[in-house]
Simulated assay, not measured.
Amino acid sequence: MQDDTRAPAAQPWLRAIDVHHHILPDFYRDELQALGIPTVLPGIDKPTWNAGASLSMMDRHGIRAAVTSVWPGVPTSLEAKPAAEFARRVNEYLAGLISDHPGRFGAFAVLPFPHMDAVLDEFAYAVDVLGLDGVGLVSNYGGLYVGDPSMDPLFAEAERRHRPLFVHPTVPPAGGLPLPDVPAPWYEFPFETVRVAAQLLCNRTLETFPELSVILPHGGGGLPSLAGRLAAGALISPALAARLPEDPMGSLRRLYLDIAMTGDPHALAALRSFSPASRLLVGSDFPLMPEAATLGTGHRVLAHGKFDAEERLLLDHRNAEGLFPRLSGKDV
């Protein structure tokens, strides 16, 4: 199929790869409830999911493939053995979903944090045996943030195997949130993503692992607006300046960002100013975001994002094909 910058009026995308696509298998929700976790999003209506619903939504939006993730993954309260068993069950389900729908689904593996030996074992199995496409992480595991140096063994293996990391925000570990009576994702998630970016920057993670690909959802949360502040560490502290890479802004701009929830003019302006088109990806956030909102975001991003024809193709599928060659429809 040849590239074309036109799309039917009802759908924003042409042949997109959606990198931010949640699935909620019944067994996963049942397991969480058995552990005393009643919902994946406290204070928010519980979404429902099945493969047919995803496929129908994808067809309506012009999405030919979705890289799925099971969020928030394995509860950190589990000991190493049950955590590893939980992760294995989820990852084998993901592999089955891919097998049942060839070319339509990819998957980010879940891993049994904080047990690093089990994490590395499950990563190898998920990638080498099950053939999953990357790793789905949350911003912090009980206060252990993704940019922490203790994560380096996983980063090294992900870089060696060319498997991207998708880092979805979660609730911060600190108690005493300022609005305890409203859902924390509403206001905390954008800052969680900034915390991840700051730690990756301060620990020079992307310089240590130059071939590692990291995807941040929701347009990078608050990162596009705060990247300049993070890059100006030398103005805040000489000691901080010594920890930052030579080109802090260049390092941050290597991160991949998906466009979920970026359809308002303020978020979109910051995103387009900060991130090159070669680092932008389609993300629906389905079904945690209503389909109408996802559809509207796609249309607004394309209508007001000032993408030229080549940039539209990069966003629609070419960038994602570079990260997920199995979903490119080409022999690699």
Rank of each mutant, 00 (worst) to 15 (best):
L165M: 11
A320L: 04
E192N: 09
A242L: 02
H168G: 08
P210G: 10
T5M: 06
A277H: 08
P183A: 08
D133L: 01
M261A: 15
H266I: 14
T76P: 06
Q33L: 11
D3P: 10
D152F: 07
A293G: 14
G147Y: 00
R88V: 11
L206N: 02
G222A: 15
S284M: 05
F108A: 04
F123W: 06
Y145V: 03
L315Y: 03
F166Y: 15
L132E: 09
F189L: 01
G250D: 13
M261W: 13
V90I: 15
A126P: 03
E192P: 05
T294Q: 00
S99A: 15
I215S: 00
L240Q: 02
W49T: 07
D3V: 10
R204Q: 13
I23E: 00
T262Q: 13
L244Q: 06
L24T: 15
R160T: 14
L41S: 14
G329R: 03
V19L: 08
V301C: 09
I259A: 06
F27R: 15
Q33A: 15
N91W: 02
L200P: 04
T297L: 06
V19C: 13
A269W: 10
P185A: 05
P164V: 02
G175W: 14
E310N: 10
H218M: 05
A84V: 11
P75Y: 14
H61P: 01
R163Y: 09
V282C: 04
L130N: 07
R243F: 06
L230V: 07
F86V: 12
W49D: 05
L226C: 04
Y187Q: 12
S251F: 01
A197L: 07
V70G: 04
L257E: 03
R64G: 04
V214H: 01
G96L: 10
A303L: 10
L302F: 12
P114S: 11
N203Y: 00
P153I: 01
R89D: 08
L120Y: 02
D247L: 13
P42D: 15
L41W: 02
G106M: 05
L212V: 04
L32M: 15
P180M: 08
N91L: 03
A320R: 01
P102K: 09
H115N: 10
P178G: 13
A320N: 09
S99I: 08
S275F: 03
Y93T: 07
L206Y: 01
F123Q: 03
A174P: 07
H299Y: 06
D26V: 15
A156E: 12
A51P: 11
L315K: 05
T5I: 13
I98G: 00
P325Q: 03
E207Y: 11
S69W: 01
R243W: 08
N203A: 02
R318V: 07
Y256T: 13
G96T: 12
Y145R: 03
A198L: 11
Y141F: 10
D45N: 13
D18M: 13
L206C: 13
A174K: 12
G233K: 04
R195E: 10
D285C: 13
R229P: 02
P248H: 07
C202T: 14
P183S: 01
P82I: 09
H115Y: 09
F105V: 02
K46Y: 14
R89L: 08
L216I: 11
G36F: 08
L302W: 12
N91F: 05
P178Q: 08
I215F: 12
P183R: 02
V301G: 11
L154G: 06
M249C: 08
H21F: 02
N50Q: 15
L41C: 12
